[in-house]
């Protein structure tokens, strides 16, 4: 087969005798790094893309609401921009997920799918509260400012926090904790400030998570307990 490695075609029990320990260590580290990249659901590059998307979207929301008296909510242009950014993010995430899980099967993947469904489901929490607030004639400050900005961070962040804790995934736990904390801050800084606080929080969380997991790719540890969850 053209372009494929055909080493050790005639293998024997001693076919590794010529393999130098240094070369073996290099090969092991390189293979682990490559495999982790192959199976990773959140490679560093996607975090960089998400960070840029978050900055763009939340900056638009903040700029369109800054200085509003009384507060009326984000402009239609800003909302369209955010929806486009979310659509792009979802499309990229689906592509990465399909690539990472192609040919993979088993209990851990099934568990991960259930966790993913729970996280996806938690996204409806904030719009539901927003709808209830609208129903009870809450002010625009609450319905179109504080709740949509802070709600997703607190609700989705708490769900991810639970998932991360149950998996013992420290980078994910720290990131989710930062997101929930940012969401709580966003509740108390006014409607326009809430968008700014949410944007800064998510950007720091995404970039911080990328930095924490980047080390795993560059310096894979000797153990074999690295999971796709990273």
């Amino acid at each position: 087969m053209q372009g494929t490695h055909d080493i050790d075609q005639t293998t024997t029990a001693n076919d590794g005798n010529g393999l130098d320990p240094r070369e073996a260590a290099r090969l092991l580290a390189e293979t682990k790094r490559d495999a982790q990249r192959q199976f990773s659901l959140s490679p560093p590059w996607i975090s960089a893309v998400m960070g840029a998307v978050i900055l763009l979207g939340y900056a638009a929301l903040w700029l369109s609401t800054r200085g509003q008296h009384p507060y009326s909510g984000p402009s239609a242009g800003a909302i369209v921009l955010v929806y486009v950014a979310v659509a792009v993010s979802i499309a990229v995430s689906v592509k990465v997920y399909q690539r990472a899980t192609a040919g993979v099967s088993g209990p851990a993947l099934r568990k991960q799918k259930v966790e993913g469904a729970a996280i996806a489901l938690s996204y409806i929490g904030s719009p539901l509260i927003q709808g209830a607030m609208y129903h009870y004639h809450a002010s625009h400050t609450i319905v179109y400012g504080v709740i949509p900005a802070a709600g997703p961070l607190i609700i989705v962040g708490t769900t991810v926090l639970g998932v991360a804790a149950s998996n013992g995934n420290r980078p994910q736990f720290i990131t989710a904790l930062a997101v929930v904390t940012g969401g709580i801050v966003a509740l108390f800084v006014g409607p326009s400030g809430a968008w700014l606080a949410a944007g800064i929080t998510l950007f720091i969380a995404v970039v911080g998570y990328a930095a924490m997991t980047r080390g795993r790719f560059l310096h894979p540890q000797g153990g074999t307990d690295e999971h796709r969850h990273a």
Binding site: T31, K32, G106, T224
Partner: peptide, 17 residues
Amino acid sequence: PARLRIVATLAALPDGD
């Protein structure tokens, strides 16, 4: 080389996958 790469690649998956 080949077997080391096979085992290291499979070990990157969670246990049982």
